[in-house]
Design a protein around this nucleic acid. Structure first.
Lengths: 236, 236
DNA sequence: CTTTGCATTCTTGTATGCAAGATTTTTGAG
DNA sequence: CTCAAAAATCTTGCATACAAGAATGCAAAG
């Protein structure tokens, strides 16, 4: 209520919806109407529409022309592509980062890791992911390539929902251990080891992908199989 | 005039403006008004606004709140970042492509290169760049990672205007030779050589960047140097 | 009971109106 | 002539109105 005047309503809509979608607060395949969102966000349809247009370009919502808007289902293809992109970029970044040494940034990374441990204890997924983002972004800074983070971030959006799902079954401790390993390697200027651990780390998310696809089937894109024909109306 | 009904007006606006900006038909730092664009495109301000919103998110236009819209100046930082991102992705792609062999795609690549040579003879920059895009996209297909192209394409947008500028001074022949070299290496399954030539090729664009910054200074972002304080009013 | 065609309702896509902030011009004083 | 302040103009940001297409429900026929 304090900074309402600073950013536009459209931007506010974009950020709020983006956060809600990635945080699974709005569920994949869930129908959302422009009017309903406008009411929810307390604005008119126009800024909502602008936000939806951007989200559609990013692949987070599907605009079905004149037939409604739905939160985009998680698409296996998109996840794999995003993983590839992210891996290439982050590995290159961490390799460059390992050749730099900025005390302040390194300290920030350490702090982020510690805070992330705390987030696990507190069972606070939002904080966990926030720290994760901060840490990875700091590696970009360390490498002197802050701009690259926005590209990684774009790719990550397609994976974040999967990560959220895997949290519910997940071993978060292992991820933090990975982070510590990467940091040690970077501080030791061991480029190869840093890349190695980071690669392992980044691929960990994908391990249970097919299982998640089964567990959370309604969140994933259905392969054109008309499910209704299989389940008879078990009413009688 | 045949497919007007298929895509929305907003999408039409987005594509048209995107093309005009990248093609330097709309010049960097040129002020554009929503109303003027609406008239130009024969629609109302609403779809124009939607397009501008997306273009702003991509960094192709700057929306100065209530003070006008300008075509984004070329930003050196953004170009360097885009170059980094593109290089990482394309090198990984060509390395994977070199381990595949799909006759039809390889043929398509060869065709694109030949058509590109033709474009040089005809002095047709639009065709030249269109072939270039097609070829690079085909390598993504060859690697079985079509989805990656959209990410490369996003990064490329920040470099394309620079490439357009360097065409005017440029040796396009060299670029085509690079392409042929890459194709040969890929067909010979020589991963390392393919990466090597591709890297050289991708970096060629950046060589004259600083010179272009001087030659086309008004197209580039000015470094906050208040020019007015230095030039006294030489009226009297 | 199932199916087909129609009418209703709902949702989006676009146009337009209005208000607020920024820019420019004008006007007046020194 | 210079500078400053205020008014007029311009431009965007948001809300609303309207129209066209899609989905849904209903009724009638087989």
């Amino acid at each position: 209520m304090a900074r309402d005047t600073k950013i536009s309503a459209a931007e506010h809509c974009y950020r709020t919806l983006s956060r809600k979608i990635i945080g699974l607060e709005l569920k994949p395949n869930e129908p959302i109407g422009e009017h309903a969102l406008a009411d929810l966000l307390g604005v008119s349809r126009t800024p909502v529409r602008e936000a939806l247009s951007r989200l559609s370009a990013e692949g987070l919502v599907d605009l079905r022309s004149r037939a409604g808007v739905v939160v985009a289902p998680i698409r296996m293809d998109a996840v794999r592509t995003a993983q590839f992109v992210r891996e290439q970029l982050e590995l290159a970044i961490v390799a460059e980062a390992a050749q730099q040494s900025n005390r302040r940034i390194l300290l920030g990374i350490r702090q982020a890791i510690e805070e992330q441990e705390l987030a696990i204890v507190e069972d606070n997924p939002d904080l966990f992911f926030e720290c994760d983002e901060r840490m990875h972004a700091l590696y970009c800074s360390l490498a002197g390539r802050e701009g690259v983070w926005s590209f990684i971030s774009d790719a990550k959006k397609h994976m974040d929902r999967v990560r959220r799902l895997s949290v519910q079954a997940g071993q978060l401790d292992q991820l933090v251990q990975d982070h510590q390993g990467v940091l040690e390697a970077v501080m030791a200027r061991d480029t190869e080891k840093a890349r190695e651990i980071m690669q392992l780390h980044l691929r960990r998310v994908m391990l249970d992908l097919s299982e998640l696809g089964r567990l959370f089937a309604p969140y994933f894109e259905q392969n054109e199989a008309k499910a209704e024909g299989q389940s008879p109306a078990g009413q009688s």
